[in-house]
């Protein structure tokens, strides 16, 4: 098990990516699966950093567990309650028509990973992402 706690700040994202790579270095994982997990983790961490703490500050914790069959990532924060696993699928035609830049990250994460589980417990958002190998 690997654990990392960071300030909710975009400058921490590169460290999160390196933490993931270090955590997965001892398992046999394809480049494509590694990329999918990395992107999903980046999307969810950036989402917490941008939206969980509207007054600034805040921290988040990441835990990575893995075995031969799957990688499990748990992200915890104490910010505003938000369940990304229930966000609706965006309509690309509507996104283009509206000229919107954002709104694709959560959907992208759900598609890249095999499971997306959310619970609110003890004042924390607890998001679990699972990738089967």
């Amino acid at each position: 098990m690997n654990h990392l706690s960071i300030a909710a700040d975009l400058s921490e994202v590169d460290g999160v990516r390196q933490f993931l790579k270090d955590s997965l270095a001892d398992i046999d994982i394809s480049e494509e699966d590694g990329f999918k997990i990395e992107l999903a983790l980046v999307e969810m961490v950036v989402n917490v950093i941008r939206y969980a703490y509207p007054d600034g500050g805040g921290v988040l914790a990441i835990e990575i567990r893995k075995d031969r069959h799957r990688v499990i990532i748990e992200i915890r924060d104490s910010g505003l309650p938000f369940d990304p696993c229930r966000a609706p699928k965006p309509d690309i035609d509507e996104v283009v028509a509206a000229g919107r830049k954002g709104g694709l990250g959560i959907y992208l994460t759900r598609e890249l990973m095999d499971e997306c589980l959310y619970r609110r417990d003890g004042g924390q958002n607890i998001l679990t992402l699972v990738k089967k190998l």
Binding site: V95, V96, G99
Partner: peptide
Amino acid sequence: DFIDSFGVGEILASYI
């Protein structure tokens, strides 16, 4: 070698 959803948004906005 890497883009996230922000990058996707940048490309989409450029296209629009």
